[in-house]
Nucleic acid binder design. Structure first.
Lengths: 221, 221
DNA sequence: GCAAAAGTGTTCCAGATACACCCATGT
DNA sequence: ACATGGGTGTATCTGGAACACTTTTGC
């Protein structure tokens, strides 16, 4: 039991977890087991522990839900309208995370909650103001594709230029010219050839590339 | 006296208040009267009331310190390292505000604190992690000059193109070509001539302009 | 040999940059 | 008349957009 001279809000972190799989930008949601919005889908999140930073709290939530760590995580926005949670005043610091499709290995469902990946165009109704949050996160992601190397965070260790282009065109939802894309992405000198090839179909093998500074997201002018 | 089953952090808003005056980008600081960092300069801020949104809290702080309302205010970042305040766990949602030099009318100092404007290159040592915050705010402001109409928020109701150009070159800290600047700023069609002139020195009078949609900050491509 | 994806250059256009002189006024 | 800041146009450069065919492989 804790006591204060004046009222304190609760503080949570929520995490919008994106990945690209099956030609779709996907989002991780959990089905709420608890009281408000019980049974509704929501963003993973939880209370900030008193001895952890906000970043660490978000990273912990991410790890608990997906089992991945060491991925890209960025603070998005903080929401705190007085009535956004019916129980008590809750202020939530929202992060978003990008995880490469290969790292992805869902935990056995925590606390008997259902966990699932949803394509951005097949999202269910969400609890709280989470639909608003998801919209913001997607906008930020789309904007950052243009002026940063953020998209590399979706890629596995090695990848082909076609795979990289797919990620861009899936998220931007537009066709991209192959030659212009290659010129553009190679010009920023953030990726390099591995020397290896991937041969998979009945067609010419593709050069494999890797990110020069994995984990680092650069702003490109 | 308020009681909770688990520990709650305190939540504050801090506001980085910018204006442009005397050929400088200036920042409003208050001298702390209270216990931690007593006597040090700090960003204005305070606890979020339980019935107000975060935006409203920031707007209230801004109004209390400067007496201005209805100005541009944007959320910047939320900081919450466990030990950033020695008293208790404090999570702060930081906003920044841009106020036109003419609206500016400092309140009689609240709570016997000193209040002052400081040029960005003559900042004193700041309390808490406020120097970090100020750095972030300036970076965001500089970045936004390029791709938004945010700079108009510094202008009074009517202004000349030279005055507008001054604001840009002061904040970006670089010379700007007069003809190119005019072409660029007129091309985005966000300002219009008032039909009035300003005549002030022994020189040709300048056309006065006004912002077409005051208060609105547009993203420019 | 054919289907399937990988790879590769050039032309064109628009927006940004560089740059110098005349204009209207107050004293 | 002169000092002061206001106002204007053109040539050039650069980065993005459009666009089609050849190559290498598996079957």
């Amino acid at each position: 039991m804790y006591q204060y001279d004046y009222e304190h809000p609760a503080v949570t972190t929520d995490v919008v977890i994106f990945t690209v799989r099956e030609q779709c930008l996907k989002l991780l949601l959990i089905k709420r087991a608890g009281k408000p919005f019980k049974g509704k889908w929501a963003l993973p999140g939880g209370f900030v522990a008193m001895d952890e930073s906000l970043d660490d709290g978000a990273r912990r939530e991410l790890e608990e839900e997906t089992g991945v760590s060491g991925v890209y995580l960025e603070q998005l926005y903080t929401l705190g309208k007085p009535d956004r949670d019916p129980r008590e005043r809750v202020i939530t610091v929202v992060y978003y995370a990008l995880i490469p499709s290969d790292k992805l290995q869902l935990r056995a469902a925590t606390d008997a909650e259902a966990v699932g990946w949803f394509g951005m165009d097949e999202l269910p109704a969400l609890a709280f103001d989470h639909d608003e949050i998801v919209k913001m996160a997607e906008e930020r992601l789309v904007a950052k594709l243009d002026y940063s190397t953020i998209a590399f965070q979706f890629m596995p260790e090695v990848f082909t230029l076609s795979e990289l282009q797919d990620v861009y065109s899936i998220i931007l939802q537009e066709e991209i010219d192959k030659r212009n894309f290659r010129k553009w992405v190679l010009a920023m000198e953030s990726i390099e050839e591995t020397g290896q090839m991937r041969r998979d179909g009945p067609h010419r093998p593709a050069k494999l590339y890797r990110v020069k500074a994995p984990g680092k997201v650069e702003i490109i002018k």
